[in-house]
Nucleic acid binder design. Structure first.
Length: 480
RNA sequence: GGCGCUAUCGUCUAACGGUUAGGACGGAGCCCUCUCAAGGCUUAAAUACGGGUUCGAUUCCCGUUAGCGCUACCA
């Protein structure tokens, strides 16, 4: 049975790169009828936050992709130290009594790679035991077998055969001096215990994988298969981070701005992966069927956002496509809570009548607020009376049109076709073009020149509202 | 610095070593049209650079350059 896991650490909100890794794992599991596991990698106690944990669950729940098993690393610490002890007792790890380095002070100025601390690596068994017994703190380091093994290798599902000389791998830590496992140890111990068969994760772990292979082998466990996916970057090429790029990299930002979960998933899949048949819009089922590791790219991909436009245009387009192809009733149901959250008390029935008029005019659910404002608010937002004047017309013409409309609408059958017939007829009577007739009416009832088609709009607005707004428009015209 | 990964239109990407280098988003233009959308059509736009190998390189090899990753008792 194939088993995959998504293992976020709760040290920041769920960002879209992590979400994509989750999605790829999920797709892979579902494609192969395997098991999807969510594991919270929370061994860095100092950096864990409750807010981060919530952000992860909020984001994942919104995506609507379920997982089958759930674990928390902090509840499995015994397992980790067990593996560390086993490795230590085989002589494949050693105690390092060197005091912990403060922060990343060493990092930048480092000339040449640090591999190990000779004194500690070669410390005699007796002295090591004595100092440990005396309570001196130590980190447990993996003894990279540079003498006996020349290279470590593994086959990556995306990047192919990978080889690295043991001479280039440093003696990494397994246990910190406070006894907590490091990421490498905890991750491998859990992957082994949970019988993970395939690890699909970010490419930033590609070179760490050699260490992991070493750990699995030292513990006597067969390593799982690995597949690394390319990273997501900002337009400037740097990796996505809240500090640099703000909330645009957080999954919840997409949710709150009115993305449909599936459109978002669809978009993320298309960044760094391709079904190779030019298809762009895929249903969940189609994604499951089409998803293979072979379709994953090897180079980083940029999420094309700017300060002016926080979302990748393709993501927005995909969302609009999904909105357009939804059943009206479904879209209406999605729109209702957005509208109500903005403070408008709209009935489901009315929302259902508004929806078809704006369906192909909104790209994000949020857009309903600006696209349908004149349906929602009792009073129109202030607008300039000059807007009422039609092309090649003057205030007098606008007034004539509106006076006429008052009479026509009072009598017309208030349906799309009835209104169209009445209004076109009126234009003919006045001897003006239909456009000149419709424009002042549109502005009068909508408060602006760009709006959904007129007849359907009038119909949904209803006779009383239309007449009232036209009278108000006439008043405004007098002021010119 | 060391080690590793990567390199096709602005962006996401396609192309058994043989294509006029294809598609999509975005841009521009035209059509449709009661405005705005949607839709239809057209168009500009790419193989980082230099060497090989080959009858023939986007594709294989080497180098250069650039970007990214790892190089923590972070994950």
């Amino acid at each position: 049975m194939l088993r995959v896991r998504f293992a976020p650490s709760p040290t920041g909100f769920l960002h879209i790169g992590s979400a994509r890794t989750f999605i790829f794992n999920w797709l892979y599991a579902r494609h192969h009828g395997g098991v999807m596991i969510l594991r919270i990698d929370d061994t860095d106690v100092g950096r864990n936050t409750e807010a981060s944990l919530n952000s992860i669950f909020d984001g994942l729940r919104w995506l609507g992709l379920n997982w089958d098993e759930e674990y928390k690393q902090s509840e499995r610490l015994g397992l980790h130290s067990e593996m560390a002890q086993a490795i230590f007792h085989k002589g494949l790890a050693y105690r390092d009594f060197t005091p912990a380095q403060g922060g990343d002070s060493e990092k930048s100025g480092a000339q040449g790679a640090w591999l190990f601390n000779a004194d500690m690596r070669n410390l005699g068994q007796e002295e090591s035991d004595r100092r440990a017994a005396a309570g001196e703190p130590f980190a447990l380091r993996f003894r990279v077998p540079r003498e006996s093994v020349s290279h470590v290798r593994f086959a990556d599902g995306v990047y192919g055969e990978q080889v690295k000389a043991t001479a280039d791998i440093e003696d990494f830590a397994l246990l910190r001096s406070d006894g907590m496992p490091t990421y490498h140890l905890a991750s491998c111990a859990d992957d082994a215990d949970l019988r993970i068969t395939d690890i699909i994760r970010g490419q930033d772990h590609l070179t760490n994988t050699f260490k992991h292979v070493l750990i699995f082998e030292a513990a006597g466990c067969p390593p799982p298969r690995f597949a690394h996916v390319p990273l997501l970057t900002a337009p400037d090429g740097t990796k996505l981070s809240k500090r640099r790029h703000g909330p645009v990299v957080s999954v919840t930002t997409y949710r709150d701005s009115g993305f449909l979960p599936h459109a978002f998933i669809n978009f993320l899949c298309l960044v760094g992966w391709s079904p190779k048949n030019d298809r762009e819009q895929l249903t969940r089922q189609e994604l499951i069927e089409a998803f293979t590791l072979e379709g994953i790219h090897r180079s980083n991909a940029v999420v094309n956002f700017t300060e002016a436009d926080p979302f990748d245009p393709k993501a927005v387009w995909l969302n609009a496509e999904h909105i357009r192809t939804m059943a009206v009733a479904d879209l209406s149901a999605q729109l209702l809570p957005v509208v109500r959250a903005a403070g408008f008390d709209v009935s489901p029935e009315k929302m259902l009548r508004i929806t078809p008029l704006i369906q192909e005019r909104i790209r994000l659910l949020r857009d309903v607020l600006t696209a349908a404002d004149f349906f929602l608010a009792a009073d129109l937002a202030p607008y300039d009376a000059s807007e009422l004047i039609p092309k090649k017309g003057d205030p007098a013409l606008a007034a004539r049109v509106l006076e006429c409309a008052l009479g026509v609408l009072a009598a017309a059958q208030f349906t799309h076709d009835g209104l169209e017939a009445a209004l076109r007829g009126a234009a003919g009577t006045l001897g003006i073009k239909a456009g000149q007739m419709f424009e002042p009416i549109r502005v009068a009832v909508c408060g602006r020149k760009t709006a959904p088609p007129l007849f359907g709009t009038l119909e949904v607005l209803g006779r009383e509202t239309c007449l009232g707004r036209i009278r108000q428009a006439l008043e405004k015209l007098k002021a010119i």
